[in-house]
Amino acid sequence: MGVGRRLGNLLGSAGVLAAVASIAFGLPAVDRAIPAGRPVPAGEPYEIGGGVTLVPPAGALLDVTKSRPGPDRGTALFLIGAVRCAVVAAPFTGTLEEAAARLRDKITATRGYQVTGREADVRTQSGLVGRQGGYTAPGRGGRYAVYLAGPVVVEVTISGTDLELRDVLRTIEESITTIARTGTPSPARAGP
């Protein structure tokens, strides 16, 4: 093989490497350079997905990269300072107790996370019934709540340090009481 063809092979290889690297590392770098938080209109219901809505906490930013409203399910992540409030709506056919147990399992599946105290019954302004509890983690703590809204379960997890939570917990709890279900979920799909 001549030097010219070997050089061509080297250039081609470099091109492939550059293309793979730009996808594997370049795109994430561009993504990190653009902030994900977007302000949400104050006092207006935000559609989580699956027909579930919530009025976001005052001053909250919506993390658009972690929020995916869909016809049958959805997620939304609100950022209130350093406190994160994640809301997940998904189809569910079990009881409220089963839904609460499932959320507890999800929380404690993360190493170092422990559920604390007893759960309390809660109710939203629209009449959805649910359970609420607390959890701790190294350097962090939080609350969780779970509601049944017809065939949809709504899971809420709030996390932050004690100091951060103390300032905004009341605002977030008020926001959670606005959870309501307004629509009918439609079937999901499959794709490559």
Binding site: V20, I23, A24, F25, L27, P28, V30, D31, I34, P35, A36, G49, L62, V64, T65, S67, R68, P69, G70, G74, A76
Partner: peptide, 29 residues
């Protein structure tokens, strides 16, 4: 191995960029 390993971070970042440049609803759909 290669395509999947590169696609996981690449596609996640691209999804995020679509959401940032448009909206979460458009990105979801």
């Amino acid at each position: 191995l290669v395509a999947t390993a590169a696609a996981i971070p690449g596609a996640t970042a691209a999804h995020n960029l679509v959401a940032k440049l448009t909206s979460p609803r458009y990105a979801a759909a």
